[in-house]
């Protein structure tokens, strides 16, 4: 067990959340807009191959925040394009993010069927 990874996960993940919170509190941007921006940032960082080293360093601290979603989309597209040519951008787009999207849809649907909002 690599305990240092846990320390890094805590402070890197915490820092990303803290900076997002400061952005929320000091601008009129709403959280949806901030999350959208973070995803775009993740896509760009992924394009330059800069986000994977952070995941290497901080584990869940970099893999859990939404930036990782943008990074994974870009990486999926890039990797598949390298394998199968330009069409790979379309076929590989959701290669790595399928887990998140699929589970969110399934859990969301099931929750909607079973539960009622509490208000």
């Amino acid at each position: 067990m690599n305990w240092m990874l846990y320390v890094n996960a805590f402070w890197v993940g915490g820092l990303i959340c803290m900076l997002s919170q400061l952005l929320f509190d000091t601008t009129t941007l709403n959280m949806g807009q901030i999350l959208t921006g973070l995803t775009v940032l993740g896509g760009i960082l992924g394009g330059f191959g800069l986000y994977d080293p952070l995941i290497e360093f901080a584990g869940g601290g970099a893999a859990m925040p939404i930036i990782s979603f943008g990074n994974s989309l870009a990486k999926g597209a890039i990797t598949e394009a390298e394998r199968t040519g330009i069409i790979g951008i379309l076929t590989g787009m959701f290669e790595l993010t399928s887990t998140g999207i699929t589970s969110a849809i399934v859990f969301g649907f099931l929750a909607a069927v079973i539960f009622k909002p509490k208000g």
Partner: peptide, 18 residues
């Protein structure tokens, strides 16, 4: 009605927005 206006004008009632 708090919840009825929230969902009409703003967010779903269970949305976790500050």
């Amino acid at each position: 009605h708090n919840s009825a206006t929230e969902r009409q004008y703003r967010y779903p009632t269970e949305y976790g927005g500050q």
